[in-house]
Design a protein around this nucleic acid. Sequence first.
DNA 1: ACCTGAACACCGTTCAAGT
DNA 2: ACCTGAACACCGTTCAAGT
Lengths: 231, 231
Amino acid sequence: MSRCAMIQNTRRTQRGEPALSRERIISAAIDLLDTSGESGLTFRALAAQLATGAGAIYFHISDKGDLLGAACDSIVVQALATADTHAAPQERLRAIGLALFDAIDAHPWVGAALSDAPGTMPTVRILESVGQQVQALGVPDDALWAATSALLSYILGVAGQNAANARLGQARNIVREDFLHQLANQWGQLDAAAFPFTRAVAAQLPLHDDRADFLAGIDLILVGITARRSG
Amino acid sequence: MSRCAMIQNTRRTQRGEPALSRERIISAAIDLLDTSGESGLTFRALAAQLATGAGAIYFHISDKGDLLGAACDSIVVQALATADTHAAPQERLRAIGLALFDAIDAHPWVGAALSDAPGTMPTVRILESVGQQVQALGVPDDALWAATSALLSYILGVAGQNAANARLGQARNIVREDFLHQLANQWGQLDAAAFPFTRAVAAQLPLHDDRADFLAGIDLILVGITARRSG
DNA sequence: ACCTGAACACCGTTCAAGT
DNA sequence: ACCTGAACACCGTTCAAGT
């Protein structure tokens, strides 16, 4: 460490004012996203919370996409660490799915962020975790990609829907249950001839446990994967 | 028709200038979205294309969400009409999936729009089409929702990823193949100990046929659904 | 090297004023 | 009834000027 940096560091520590850093910015961004939603993350609001100027942030972050990606990655890393058990592949895949489901439930903006930057770290981490377990399941090499990408697409699909639901609920400032009741009402008023299935399913809609539904979908795909293996 | 409206209508027809209408606005919005992407849809650009003022649009459309939803619905209706064959349920479900895949490939913004407003018409139409065929497949009532929502989530998940890929490619102004090669390169440079699966799959990435992968995922879920049924 | 904050080039949306 | 277009309250990003 250079003498200059030491002095500056000491001075800042004495004053109790740590220097602006990438980590501090990302952490403040997560706070802002959790409390005010995606639309609450603004360079001006972020600067205010960090007691600095809006332009200062650009010294540590390249742009808003970078910021959102880093915030998302931070949550995904935490979630996947939770699922890092020593269970069998099937159980492990369920744990990965649930860990991500719960993380997105707690931080809805993560669901949208995952779809925003395909192929970047957060998605790659999920791909890796899922792929390793699918491989451990004994799926042959030529079916590995189809099985893994199906699971990944399903997980990201549920993530996106959950995020949208949460965003809508937040925008209208209503709780999940009220939102589902409103939706059930709308669906119930659709044309009976054109939408029989939707109407039939509308009544049960508010009673569904999204988490259980999500797990049922994972299980369905796993049945498909293992049925193929032994077929 | 009132005398006033008749006169106005006649005058406009004679001048070859049809009045601004919801349909004309939505059609212009689709053009704009197809040619300039999601960021190209602006009330100012839309007004310019329609040779009117920005505020005039609000007389026929409530806000940007309404506009995007209506544009999305228009494409989904067309796509689902294509898949309305007389084939068996399994084949019909594949046709629905492929019709949506192709529509989103042609109009990438539809993928994002589908995730934006959960429970609204475009998604409900897909839910209905899929649900009817799952029912026709002979799935028992208590498994109907799990099977249908799994298929729906998977379809929406792939839609979102495809949309993001297209958006990224458009932003960087590169073709799909170049994008996948860049991604394969990045993935190949990941840490070998932490990302063995991703590294192994990176090389094959640019060779994959997304459309075939999508269909393989549908088949996997269908295997899971029918295995359950007879289990 | 790092930070400040005014300025720039945009947005969606509103609304008095027109026809 | 329908349209106009300036105005309002925002954005992300840049950049001269400071320390």
